[in-house]
Write a protein that binds this DNA or RNA. Structure first.
Lengths: 180, 180
DNA sequence: CTTTGCATGTAAACCGTTACATGATTTT
DNA sequence: AAAATCATGTAACGGTTTACATGCAAAG
């Protein structure tokens, strides 16, 4: 049985204690979103598929207990499937789509000032991403483990990009100044 | 008229002198692939659409001149559309899919040795990416401009990731050693 | 009593990869 | 003569986003 990427995220999130599609989406949006996003349109259908295949199970929603939520948990098969993926040694996929870099690649068609503006915008984007991560740093440190490692990594990474782009800005600025 | 992402890549590549779908794909695969990939399945249909909209134009393939290639060039409208996109100040999209980070996020379900293996695999991936970029560094430096900037950025970026992950390895190794 | 948040879901549209088909030309 | 490379393209599939629809509960 091979799992889709979304299925793996769900299995992992359920193992971390998230019980509903809504809760999974919440956590994705403040954590893995930075390196792995998922939408409701993927989550709910995948939850159903996982249950059909016996990797998760949920009780019938208790009538009249208020919210119509349908909490699920991992089955043994689900736990095994998750572990199998985590252990599988095939080189993990990596894919980046960075429109700023694409523009920078083609930026010989821009005015020097515009190129500088682009680099500043990219810089800003990484600055903001780092700030958002810093906002949840204390909470993540308290919990520790894998989630905290990825947060530290993401933070270091965005800080690095911001710094490198700041250097490029200085380069472009002095080239601009010299031109006069 | 708004362009798809693929359309913008094509326009940019044609402006850089690439004349056929094949040539565009070639260049994408050794340059923008690292932050923006494109496949034949996107390129050829998009070439047709761009020509229908008058952003590029091509002569009829000269019969009997050998290869059945159909070289295109930018029209004025195409040049304008490209410039418009490059100048547009809306914050450029950024999206990452990093399966290694996803595994790391869930790695509390792994044995410490397995987690270390994962980090080493990620480290290795960035090392290899950096090596591939280094292989085209001299050629890119000679041409300079935007393409060279993105290459330097990509190189710095993968080197940084490799270095950070090496640090995490040391952390995990000493935690492993202490456990005994 | 109205807005915000919890909660679940679907349909359409869009994007992108993969695999395949075809055939000419160049190199070995 | 065979293999590699140049060159163009399509069909099927699968993944992803977006927009929409629904309704209850809590808070203001």
């Amino acid at each position: 049985m091979d799992l889709s990427a979304t299925a793996r995220v769900i299995l992992g999130m359920v193992r971390l204690g998230r019980q509903t599609g809504y809760e999974i989406k919440q956590l994705v949006d403040v954590s893995t979103r930075f390196f792995w996003a998922a939408s409701y349109g993927q989550i709910y259908p995948e939850l159903r598929r996982l249950e059909e295949h016996g990797l998760i199970e949920g009780d019938e929603p208790v009538a009249g207990d208020g919210r119509q939520r349908r909490p699920v948990r991992l089955t043994e098969a689900g736990e095994r499937a998750l572990a199998e993926w985590l252990r599988s040694g095939d080189e993990p996929g990596y894919e980046l789509r960075d429109e700023g870099m694409l523009k920078l690649f083609f930026s010989d068609a821009m005015e020097p000032e515009e190129r500088l503006g682009l680099v500043r915008a990219m810089h800003d984007g990484h600055e903001q991403a780092a700030a958002r991560l810093r906002g949840i740093e204390d909470a993540a440190r308290a919990r520790g483990g894998g989630p905290y490692m990825t947060l530290r990594y993401g933070l270091a990474f965005h800080d690095f990009c911001a710094g490198w782009l700041a250097g490029l800005e200085r380069e472009l600025e002095s080239a601009l100044a010299e031109r006069r």
